[in-house]
């Protein structure tokens, strides 16, 4: 009964877009990346994202919903995040490749989130790491960053979870689509 009644209304609710969640320490370039991906333009204000930001746009004929979690206040917000993680197909973790001092923090944050979401999101939701600000002299290489973040342990915890580090530059847009392509191939239900 419920299904027959439900059918006429199905058209009212568009199919849920695959959701990609951006998160990372503050000031690493999450908003810049998202803005660049959506508009092709450089984000010229650098105001902190408070709370979260949602964007949806088409990429390679499929449309995505990107939720961007503000870096500030992340520890307080993390319990809220779970609600946004329900239909998540992939994660994007953004790190500042020049910021060697906060690598330790970036690592513990990533692992904290991964622990937190275990069981709440599909096991095969992939993790893309943008090693952002890679054009800055003295930036760490992609493999260096994967070591620093101890990404290998993601696989030890869950063999289905793929990860990939993509070096990128949110200002010029280099590396962004390479990363998305990977995510497209690996993320769940895409």
């Amino acid at each position: 009964m419920g299904t027959t009644l439900g059918k006429p209304f199905a058209g009212l609710f568009p199919e849920i877009e695959p959701r990609i969640v951006f998160f990372g320490l503050p000031g690493t370039g999450k908003s810049s990346i998202l803005h660049k991906l959506k508009t092709g333009e450089m984000l010229s204000t650098n105001m902190p994202t408070v709370g979260l930001d949602m964007e949806s746009f088409k990429y390679k004929n499929s449309s995505f919903c990107f939720s961007e979690m503000g870096g500030h206040g992340r520890y307080r917000m993390i319990s809220l995040w779970k609600h946004y993680f329900h239909q998540v197909s992939g994660f994007v973790y953004v790190v500042d490749s020049r910021d060697r001092e906060r690598m330790e923090e970036a690592k513990s944050f990533l692992h904290m989130v991964m622990d937190e979401i275990q069981g709440h999101v599909p096991d095969n939701a992939a993790v893309l790491v943008y090693a952002n600000k890679h054009e800055v002299p003295g930036a760490m290489s992609a493999s260096e960053i994967s070591n620093e973040l101890d990404l290998a342990s993601l696989r030890q915890r869950n063999w289905q979870r793929n990860w990939h580090v993509q070096s990128s530059c949110a200002l010029t847009g280099d590396g962004l689509h390479e990363g998305l392509d990977w995510l497209l191939k690996n993320a769940e239900r895409m």
């Binding site: 890679h134 054009e135 800055v136 002299p137 003295g138 930036a139 290489s141 992609a142 493999s143 994967s146 990404l151 290998a152 993601l154 696989r155 793929n162 990860w163 990939h164 580090v165 993509q166 070096s167 990128s168 530059c169 010029t172 847009g173 280099d174 590396g175 689509h177 390479e178 990363g179 990977w182």
Partner: peptide, 26 residues
């Protein structure tokens, strides 16, 4: 175009020296 350009860049150099933006994964 960016991707194509990136494709043609030499690997093994940091991008600040004209190198490629590379990926590295599981």
């Amino acid at each position: 175009r960016r991707m194509a350009e990136n494709e043609s860049k030499p690997e093994g150099l940091p991008p600040s020296q004209g190198g490629k933006y590379v990926g590295f994964g599981s």
